[in-house]
Amino acid sequence: MENNGNGQPIEKVSIIVSHGSLEGVYPGLIMANGARMAGIEANLFFTFFGMDAIINKRMDKLKVATVGNPAMHMPTVLGSIPGMSAFATSMMKKEMEKIDIPPVREFLTMIHDAGCNIYACKASVDMFHLTKSDFCDEVDEIISVGQFYEVSAGANIIFT
């Protein structure tokens, strides 16, 4: 489908990832990668619990939320059974692998190699007492919200 002629094609996006569950992280990654694939300039900004996706010790262990997620179609008492989140996570990972969606770490490398800049939010970093060394190598910089708006000049901002 081509642009229907109403409005300019998108040339740049800034994508904010604010959730740390598996289903909270992937949409932002898929959109960032998709942007680069289409030749759209992209920046990824991780804030609050979204930072789990770029913290070395945590990024390989993201889980699907089975509680407080009505779209799981699972009663809260079932979702809270130990192991349920791990089970749902492994099911989802299997399905993702089938359609060639990489694990978070590999995906971040791919996105970064594709030319997307990756940033962590300064306020969140300070709040959680983190330093640059807690993050994976793909993280370019820890930036403030002001700097985020600077790098987002001319971009569409997408909050996930």
């Binding site: 680069r36 694939m37 289409a38 030749g39 759209i40 190699d113 594709a114 030319g115």
Partner: peptide, 11 residues
């Protein structure tokens, strides 16, 4: 991305 700048998949 260097071989096909501006979107390798489509290009």
């Amino acid at each position: 991305y260097a071989l096909f700048p501006k979107g390798p998949a489509k290009k």
